[in-house]
Amino acid sequence: MTIAEVCEKYDLSQDTLRYYERIGLIPRVNRNKSGIRDYTEEDCRWVEFIKCMRSAGLPIEVLIEYVTLFQQGEETAQVRKELLIEQRKQLMIRMKDMQKTLERLNDKITRYEQAVVGAEKALKRPED
């Protein structure tokens, strides 16, 4: 796949993909005879993984650490697992905070809706 196709598939900019490659989040992508990046299925799996983890809020630094450990082989499997467990804990904390915020927004919206209905009723007076 070309960089344009990968960008469209994963809704990322070309600059983002190049940045991820430059900092080592995705492996160096092979190039065709013309020097154009040629993404493999394996490359795309890395792109999908990184995008998913970034969407979950994992910092770039943590992802760099994870990829570095992955490249070191199976002897780092336990460390990688622990890293992911810690990130899962952090994500769960953020999700609880977001849930509280959502509840507060819902309460606020409900109060505004009730105020609007109350105002409309006050404007509609029965005819004498």
Rank of each mutant, 00 (worst) to 15 (best):
M1V: 14
T2K: 13
A4L: 12
A4E: 14
A4P: 14
C7N: 07
E8T: 10
K9R: 13
K9G: 09
Y10K: 14
Y10D: 15
D11N: 07
Q14G: 13
D15N: 15
D15G: 15
L17W: 06
Y19S: 08
Y19N: 08
Y20C: 06
Y20A: 02
Y20H: 12
R22G: 06
I23D: 15
I23W: 07
I23E: 13
G24A: 00
G24F: 09
L25W: 02
L25A: 00
I26V: 10
R28E: 12
V29E: 11
I36H: 11
I36K: 14
R37F: 06
D38Q: 08
T40S: 03
R45P: 12
R45W: 08
W46G: 01
W46N: 03
V47N: 00
V47R: 06
E48A: 13
I50F: 00
K51T: 08
K51F: 03
K51H: 08
C52T: 13
A56N: 12
G57D: 14
E61P: 00
V62R: 10
V62S: 13
V62W: 10
V62T: 10
L63P: 01
I64Q: 07
I64P: 01
E65P: 05
Q72C: 02
E75R: 06
T76G: 07
T76A: 04
A77P: 01
Q78P: 15
Q78E: 12
V79G: 14
V79R: 15
V79Y: 09
R80A: 11
R80E: 11
R80W: 08
L83Y: 07
R88A: 08
I93L: 14
R94P: 05
R94Y: 07
M95K: 05
K96M: 09
K96V: 14
D97P: 00
Q99T: 10
Q99N: 05
T101L: 12
T101Y: 05
K108V: 01
E113C: 09
E113H: 05
E113D: 01
E113N: 06
Q114T: 00
A115E: 05
G118M: 04
G118H: 02
A119V: 01
A119C: 01
K121S: 08
A122K: 03
K124E: 03
E127W: 02
E127D: 07
